[in-house]
Amino acid sequence: MRLLLPLLFTLSAPAALQAQALDFGAPAVQTATQSEQGASLRIATGRWQAGSVPGEERAGLVDQTAWRIDTDQSTLDLAQRLRAQLLAEGWREVFACDTDECGGFDFRYALPLIMEPDMHVDLGDFRYIALRKGDAMLSLTISRARMAAFVQLTRVSGALMADAPAMAVPDTTASQVDRAQPAAPPLAPQPVGQLGARLENAGSVVLDGVNFASGKAELQGATPVVLTQLADYLKARPDARIALVGHTDASGGLAGNIALSKARAQAVRKALIAQGISADRIEAEGVGYLAPRVSNLSPEGRTQNRRVEVMLTSTQIGAAP
């Protein structure tokens, strides 16, 4: 359904948090939204350099929403429009950059973005803005396709995590503290186990032992051993990011199966978060019955097709020992 302007974006947050109105200057359609209480997420506060992106990790309510805007406005025009609105609401800019200044491809893939096609990012034309207000941080990622623009708003409302280093607002001159403190030595690579080795070698692995009843998204039984192995791998590779892809058998219609398969991937994501993995390192999507593992012509085949796969989405990670 097409939304009329101004577009009202209401976060599913406590009453103390006010709704945020965004006027895109053109008709917009919300393509995706997700909200999670008690999660953590890192907001980038600097450009990609030396193999990483600086940021602040906060824990609390995490909201992510994406829109497609029918407009010929440039990414600069949209960024200036939205930035002005947020500053007027009391947000303070922490960091802003565009494409090459951000760090290009590497910076984009360090961001916790909603997947295509709901959020499209042209690697040759995108802009990023991070802002802070009180204990909340917010980021905007803005890009274009040929006929439309795309915007994702990511907000985390909660305290700075005690074990995450606070990142100062970037400055052109290093502070006395920056110059006085030597860089921390890199962490020694940790063993990744058999699952991790398979994932790094093949790029994706079926999570055998993660089982679902027909038409259901709840994990059956206790936490499968393979999820503990995956959590251990992610702890050993703190710069690794993954996408979980849910699948169904061919019973029922495509739309319902895509929704069910995404719910299965999200169930696995929650299980990993419960084991201490940061939410912003894990994407969860579903493809329904479009990628069967085996034939759906037997009950055994349909059981195998009800699964979740993990894909390694990092383009750079520490070398295996």
Rank of each mutant, 00 (worst) to 15 (best):
N211H: 11
P224Y: 08
S251I: 12
P238A: 10
G252D: 09
K262C: 08
R241N: 09
Q229D: 15
G215D: 10
R237I: 01
A236P: 03
T223V: 06
R269E: 15
N211W: 00
Q220V: 10
L244Y: 10
A213S: 14
Q220P: 00
A213D: 14
R269T: 05
T223G: 01
R241I: 06
V268N: 06
A250D: 15
A255R: 12
I242D: 04
A255F: 11
R269W: 00
Y233H: 05
G215Y: 09
L227A: 09
G252Q: 04
L260T: 05
T228R: 13
K270V: 00
K262L: 11
A222D: 13
L234C: 06
I242N: 09
R241V: 12
S214A: 15
A240K: 04
L230T: 09
S261Q: 10
I242Q: 05
S261E: 12
G215C: 09
N257S: 12
L219W: 01
R269P: 01
A231C: 05
G215H: 12
A217Y: 08
S261Y: 07
A213M: 11
A263I: 01
Q220N: 02
G215S: 03
D249C: 04
D249V: 07
I242W: 08
G252A: 07
L254I: 06
D239Q: 13
A263E: 14
R237T: 14
A243R: 15
G221F: 03
T223H: 03
I242M: 04
K216P: 00
K262M: 14
P224V: 06
I258Y: 01
V225H: 06
V210H: 05
D232P: 00
P224D: 08
D239W: 02
G253A: 12
Q220L: 11
A240Q: 03
I258N: 12
A267K: 08
L254M: 13
L244N: 04
A255P: 00
N257M: 06
L244E: 07
G215K: 03
A255D: 14
L230N: 05
T223I: 04
L254K: 09
G256H: 09
D232Y: 00
A259H: 10
S251K: 10
A265Q: 07
H247M: 11
A231M: 08
A231D: 10
A217L: 02
T248H: 03
L219S: 02
G256Q: 11
Q229N: 14
G215L: 03
G253K: 06
A263M: 12
T223P: 00
N211K: 11
A267R: 04
L260W: 01
A217M: 03
S261M: 07
T248N: 02
I258K: 13
D249Y: 03
H247R: 14
K235D: 10
H247Q: 13
A236N: 13
A222M: 08
A231Q: 07
A259V: 13
A265P: 08
L230P: 06
V225E: 15
A231W: 09
N211E: 15
G215A: 11
V245P: 02
G221N: 02
A236D: 06
V225G: 00
A222Q: 13
L230V: 05
G221C: 02
L260R: 12
G221H: 02
S214I: 01
L234Q: 10
K235E: 12
N211A: 12
D232E: 14
A263Y: 05
